[in-house]
């Protein structure tokens, strides 16, 4: 059984003003059938480059990229793959109806089911009212929903989403997350990128943290943090005066302090003795710093 998508020691270098810039460095990962892989990293880290290589849009890389065992450079490998780019550019002269029809025709979906699928996905993404309107007249959020319908209507085995939640309002985000959850339930595989960990945390089974083209894989975000250093906690408390110079005053009488896990019990006892009022204790997550520490370790 081939993985839905596999990257094996993939490196890619761009020439920028006669200088070589390494966009990806020896990237290796697999997305197995039914698995959701969340690729997280800051802007310019190499997320979109990874996607573009997977979809055959970028060449000139070293290493091997395969979709269900077929080379990603072969267009036939994308037969069961759908893609939603960040801020998708769709033909603005087309209507959602025409766009969905085009996707079905190109993916050679049985003609008899075209009308049923179109109606299903237009309804699912609340697009019935705009189905016959030109895309140029629709809002950005609606166009994003059209792009998602366009990708999902062909029942892809592998769905590739580049920052799918950026630019959506809270209701839109909730709807899209639910749709992607349903897709996951149906056994689909997904490569999902975001620069916000929170966005992918809800959906992904496996995480990849990418920065400056270097990828670190983790089963969950916390495991990466645990590997790197002792976990830290952010403690907030109320006090009439600053009890320790390490406490940062957020507003009058409200302080925050970062405390390592092994010192937490002692700190709470110490706070109680000085009549400080505990407000909250939260894990202190600095993904970027953990990631950088991990890379340095490697």
């Amino acid at each position: 059984m081939f993985p839905a998508l596999s990257f094996n020691k993939v490196s890619k270098t761009f020439k920028v003003r006669a200088k070589s810039v390494e966009a990806l460095s020896d990237i290796t990962f697999d997305i197995h059938e039914g698995e959701i892989f969340g690729l997280v990293g800051p802007n310019g880290a190499g997320k979109s480059t990874t996607i573009k290589i997977a979809l055959g849009m970028l060449g000139g890389y070293t290493g091997d990229v395969r979709i269900y065992g077929n080379s990603a450079e072969d267009s036939n490998a994308r037969r069961h793959v759908s893609y939603v780019p960040e801020s998708p550019s769709l033909y603005e002269q087309f209507t959602p109806n025409e766009l969905l029809k085009t996707a079905l025709e190109i993916h050679k979906v049985d003609k008899a089911s075209h009308a049923r699928l179109r109606n299903l996905w237009l309804e699912r993404l609340s697009l019935e009212a705009v189905a016959s309107k030109r895309l140029r007249t629709l809002s950005k959020g609606t166009v994003q929903r059209v792009a998602l319908a366009h990708a999902l209507i062909v029942s892809p085995k592998l769905l590739v989403l580049d920052e799918p939640l950026s630019g959506l309002d809270p209701v839109g985000r909730k709807d899209v997350i639910q749709i992607l959850r349903d897709y996951k339930q149906s056994g689909g595989s997904m490569l999902l990128t975001s620069h916000v960990l929170y966005d992918v945390e809800e959906l992904a089974d496996k995480f990849g943290f990418i920065q400056d083209g270097v990828l670190e894989i983790a089963k969950n975000p916390n495991s990466l943090l645990m590997d790197v250093a002792a976990p830290l906690f952010s403690v907030r408390y109320h006090s009439l005066e600053n009890l320790t110079p390490d406490g940062v005053e957020l507003r009058a009488g409200l302080y925050e302090m970062t405390v390592p896990q092994d010192e937490l019990i002692n700190f709470l006892g110490w706070l109680n003795e000085r009549q400080g009022l505990l407000i909250s204790i939260k894990p202190f997550v600095s993904l970027e710093s953990a990631f950088l520490a991990k890379v340095r370790q490697a």
Partner: peptide, 16 residues
């Protein structure tokens, strides 16, 4: 206008 990001992600060759 980057329509090609979607068009060329379809399972068709660029020649076609």
């Amino acid at each position: 206008r980057k329509y090609s990001l979607i068009t060329l992600s379809y399972p068709i060759s660029r020649r076609r």
